[in-house]
Design a protein around this nucleic acid. Structure first.
Lengths: 154, 154
DNA sequence: ACCGTCTCGACAGGAATAATCGGATCATGC
DNA sequence: GCATGATCCGATTATTCCTGTCGAGACGGT
């Protein structure tokens, strides 16, 4: 799991939008409150708009707002919107790999890994982030003190 | 989840080593059977050796072999050996992030995500790959037909 | 008409990634 | 001791990706 700055920014901006329901928020405001380079953010917001995740309004009183209710936008939607498919191995989707010989079972591991990422990223919505209340299944995992250690023990 | 060529190569080579127990295998052989650029592979094998995961023998009859029994080397070990920490956000470890405002709950999501990746990558060993028999917990996830779809439904 | 905002392609600098080169070093057999 | 076969390893290149910036244009509201 490697999250690029682009994805990180997109999610933080989206979270901010989710918190400010029904009013348009300017790129400038998002940039300063979340400490994101402004022009870079514009770039990202444009991507999100083309992905159908945010709407935009021009002119005075303009800005950005979510295209759907926050509860209907998952983190996975955002990530895919700016960074393409969630999972890939050397640029290939896991299901398209053709490993040979001993390496063959690796493909099933990547599939499992992706499924398990989806279980989280498809479940958590912007509404969850905005309210601070994560779904139980996710909270259970995050609450394990082991999960917060840099290096897993045993 | 983005797997670099380096990691992919490392895992495939390691799988090959796991299958060929107790004999040393040359870089040349690994490169051809797994279709990996040879000099690049040497580079990777050197990293694995420095990480204490493989041993090497020089001279005729030389080559590489695993430093420990395959059952005692997890995929996570290999990945960390060549690519550093499993998870990071913009170069920072998830536990070191300091999000502010609305974005705050995101950190817990990354922690959960990492934990759930670990659950797979720490569990699956090279012995599992070599035998083709994945742990039940992983197999259950990988066997779900949903997991093989490019885009999740519902 | 004017101001504030989004729109959007181009592009630059740097970092990461992928891969290669060439030689040094070491073990083994003869 | 010499040839051979292999690892060792720093240096180097090539390419792609990532981050971030610029500037001119389009558009909405007043």
């Amino acid at each position: 799991m490697r999250l690029s700055a682009r994805v990180d920014y997109a999610l933080r901006a989206a979270a901010e939008l989710a918190a400010t329901d029904s009013r348009a928020v300017t790129a400038e405001h998002l940039a300063t409150t979340q400490k994101i380079p402004r022009k870079f953010l514009e770039n990202i917001l444009l991507q999100l708009r083309r992905a159908g995740l945010v709407r935009s309004l021009r002119g005075a009183e303009g800005g950005y707002l979510l295209a759907r209710p926050p509860a209907e936008i998952s983190l996975a939607d955002i990530i895919r919107g700016v960074d393409g498919p969630l999972a890939n191995v050397r640029g290939e989707r896991p299901e398209h790999l053709n490993y040979s010989g001993t390496a063959l079972p690796l493909q099933r591991v990547w599939i499992a890994l992706r499924a398990s990422e989806r279980a989280i990223l498809e479940t958590v919505t912007l509404a969850d982030i905005a309210s601070g209340e994560l779904p139980v299944s996710v909270r259970e995992i995050a609450e394990d003190p082991q999960a917060w250690l840099a290096r897993p023990t045993g």
